[in-house]
Design a protein around this nucleic acid. Structure first.
Length: 116
DNA sequence: TTGTTGACTCTGA
DNA sequence: CTCAGAGCCAACA
């Protein structure tokens, strides 16, 4: 299983209405944060990955400079009930993905355990 | 094989 | 809070 499959697999498990940082995903799958960002930008056709639930460590949507995929991300999060504060940041205390919410149907999750 | 390139992060000012 | 600078590491040219 290559690193990107792991990344997509992990992002797939972020519950609706919650977010996780690139760094958090990176630690779970064992790669650098930038690979997670790269992975989000190159999702294969046919794979439904909730990429919008991944934000940077500050709780903000990372600027992309490509027109509007970052606005699209904010739009999708809002639609799921995620709130942005006055600084355009998401409060991880309220919307951060906590590992305890993992679904039951996980196989091979031991590999990716974590909690800080 | 080497050099660049980021949807990143941490630390310090 | 914002802004650099250094570190990061797989993909790509």
């Amino acid at each position: 299983m290559d690193i990107y499959e792991k990344i997509y697999d992990t992002v797939l498990r972020i519950p609706k209405g919650r977010v996780a940082s690139y760094g958090r995903i990176a630690r779970m799958v064992g790669c650098g944060p930038r690979q997670v960002g790269y992975a989000m930008g190159t999702i294969p056709d046919g794979l439904e990955v909730p990429w919008h639930r991944v934000v940077n460590s500050q709780g903000k949507v990372s600027p992309r400079g490509d027109g509007g995929s970052d606005n699209e991300q904010r739009r999708r999060l809002l639609a799921e009930g995620v709130i942005f504060n006055n600084n355009g940041k998401i409060d991880f205390e309220r919307f951060g993905w906590h590992i305890s919410e993992l679904p039951e149907d996980l196989s091979d999750w031991e590999e990716i355990i974590v909690e800080d």
